[in-house]
Nucleic acid binder design. Structure first.
Length: 343
DNA sequence: AATACGTCCAACCGCGATACC
DNA sequence: CGGTATCGCGGTTGGACGTAT
């Protein structure tokens, strides 16, 4: 549908950088009347700005929860991963970086990160590459059009085969075969893009992430798969207590009798996850989100490990390091990662 | 010191989606 | 159902600033 030209009156309107006085007027007005209806807001507040300009100024600069200052290395790492997955979908990326705006991330990418990533991609060939979402297809057969929500992602068959093969070879020789079965059924072979974009607060992989170093590279690691298995009650199979090298032991506030034979969660995880309960003690009254979680966790039982939230996706993007991530759990395999060659 | 060039980033623009009448 | 207003997004612009010549 063709639209009429913007109705904002461009005559006698201020343009360009905002003055401190204009900022203060906008802040005061929003504090009293709230956001929204920007054109009306502009008129009522006496700002000689378009509603659009007011909205932009507020959202990108004046809003109180906006984080100013340098982007940290962990934020940078996250931006790179998300951009690999999502392409130039800045608002989605910004949604995963509290306090950062899409404009800020877009600028940061265009002025700095893109060059850095391009440079790194030339010297670090080991990363699993997925085509930018602007592309419809790459050489491995990945089809991914993010402009269509809920579009399925299909992992290239060759990559899946390589991965499952390597999983079979890697540290989990001591893990019961049932755990491997889920891998070989097709790790991430089919899953819905919408799952990856579920709101962060609905993603139950909250907490428990850390940075690990492989050679000169630092990776953020999260325990998505582990948590999924927790939900499925198979944690004892997947992460036997003796391999839980990060376990720090119960705190003085824990009633350890409730844990039974199960390993309590990592202390840092527990701290970041108020309300955590050992799975066998959980029910939907105790954990209000559990029903929703089970909806996604269900996929685990059909062989799709990593479908539950965007953070899981970072594991997808760095599948090669998954081996190492899991290997770090296994005292017998601390020497280094098994590299999976996907392309 | 003057000029050219490059970088950064706030702000602008056009457009699609959605809400509303 | 069609027209209009509003919102939100991603691409682009332009001015400020820093650096090189």
């Amino acid at each position: 549908m063709k639209r009429k030209a913007n109705c904002d009156n461009h005559y006698s309107l201020n343009r360009g950088p905002w003055s401190a006085e204009e900022d203060q007027i906008l802040i005061n007005y929003v504090h009293v009347h709230g956001e929204g209806n920007w054109r009306e807001l502009s008129k009522r507040a006496g700002l000689k700005r378009t509603g659009k300009s007011c909205r932009l100024r507020w959202l990108n600069y004046l809003k109180p929860d906006i984080k100013r200052g340098n982007i940290s290395s962990s934020e940078e790492d996250l931006i790179i991963r998300l951009h690999t997955l999502l392409g130039n979908r800045w608002s989605l990326i910004a949604g995963r970086l509290p306090g950062r705006t899409d404009n800020e991330i877009k600028n940061y990418w265009n002025t700095y990160l893109r060059k850095k990533v391009e440079h790194n991609s030339n010297i670090i060939p080991m990363k699993l590459k997925m085509e930018s979402p602007q592309s419809s297809k790459n050489g491995l057969g990945i089809v991914f059009d993010p402009t269509k929500s809920s579009h399925p992602i299909t992992m290239p068959t060759r990559a899946v085969n390589d991965i499952t093969t390597s999983w079979d070879q890697n540290p989990f020789v001591s893990i019961p075969e049932v755990a491997h079965d889920h891998c070989s059924e097709g790790f991430l072979k089919h899953f819905d893009n919408y799952d990856l974009l579920m709101p962060y607060e609905d993603c139950h992989f909250n907490g428990y992430d850390r940075v690990e170093h492989f050679g000169d590279e630092a990776y953020r690691v999260n325990d998505a798969i582990g948590e999924t298995w927790y939900e499925n009650g198979k944690i004892d199979d997947y992460f036997p207590a003796e391999y839980d090298v990060e376990y720090m032991g119960p705190t003085e506030n824990d009633d350890t009798s409730k844990f039974g034979s199960r390993t309590p969660p990592h202390q840092s995880y527990r701290q970041q996850s108020p309300g955590w309960l050992p799975p066998r003690l959980r029910n939907e009254d105790q954990v209000p989100n559990l029903a929703q979680r089970h909806k996604h966790v269900h996929r685990t039982t059909t062989g799709k490990h990593a479908t539950c939230g965007l953070r899981t996706c970072t594991r997808v993007m760095f599948m090669k390091t998954c081996v190492k991530e899991q290997g770090t759990r296994n005292k017998e395999h601390e020497e280094g990662p098994t590299i999976i060659h996907c392309s």
